[in-house]
Design a protein around this nucleic acid. Structure first.
Length: 198
DNA sequence: CCATTAACTGGTC
DNA sequence: GACCAGTTAATGG
């Protein structure tokens, strides 16, 4: 979701800057704001019983996060952690709802956005069940590409380390490294000095 | 320099 | 594939 910053400001949107590794919200917190990134990247993660990290998503400029929770009376099932210095604009839940009431276009857009998220989450789930690591990774790349939609025609730069891909797919780093290499051989992805293009 | 981090390799279960 | 060990290269104080 990407809403005009001026509109957000007119509904009480306030800008905040976070340092790298700082939490924007934590698992168990009550959702009370709509967040939209102005710059920097934010990762949504949680930890399994063994303490291993699972990354649900990584968001960048002009993307929102945690918004599905604004429509529910639940607490966050994950953390939002800054991967670098991040600037966000946030709008309180009440103001956000009010904005949706007044701006039909935004409200509609919000629906489309949530629907698209849901759609790709299902595709992701499909791929994540697969035992084939290449399919899991490919599924992830399709997912990432789906909302970094803009420019990048057929070579979308994957701004993730192998470790991060591992934490997003539930695979091991070594498996990711080996699989990526195979995917390069089969020209599923392109590698330009360690960097992955898809 | 040394410490840290990421990519990578090889071998075991 | 996971898990463990070890190498290599790049980076930064």
């Amino acid at each position: 979701m990407n809403i005009d910053v001026n509109v957000l400001r007119s509904f009480g949107g306030e800008e905040k800057i976070y340092k790298s590794k700082e939490f924007i919200f934590e698992e168990g917190d009550h959702a009370s704001y709509y967040f939209q990134i102005i710059f920097g990247r934010v990762k949504l993660n949680s930890y399994n019983e063994e303490g291993k990290e699972f990354i649900h998503n990584i968001l960048g400029k002009d993307q929102s996060f945690g918004d599905p929770l604004l429509f529910l009376d639940k607490t966050y099932p994950m953390n939002a952690i800054c991967m670098e210095m991040v600037k966000v604009i946030r709008v309180s839940k009440q103001d956000f709802i009010e904005m949706l009431n007044q701006h039909n276009a935004i409200s509609l857009e919000m629906n489309k956005c949530l629907a698209q998220r849901l759609y790709y989450k299902i595709l992701m789930a499909h791929n994540m069940v697969s035992l084939n690591p290449a399919l899991r990774i490919k599924g992830l790349l399709d997912y990432l590409k789906s909302f970094h939609h803009d420019d990048c025609k057929h070579s979308f730069p994957v701004e993730l380390s192998r470790q991060q891909i591992a934490n997003l797919t539930g695979l091991r780093v070594e498996t990711v490294i080996r699989t990526i290499k195979k995917m390069e051989s089969s020209s599923t992805v392109k590698l330009t000095d360690k960097k992955i293009f898809y």
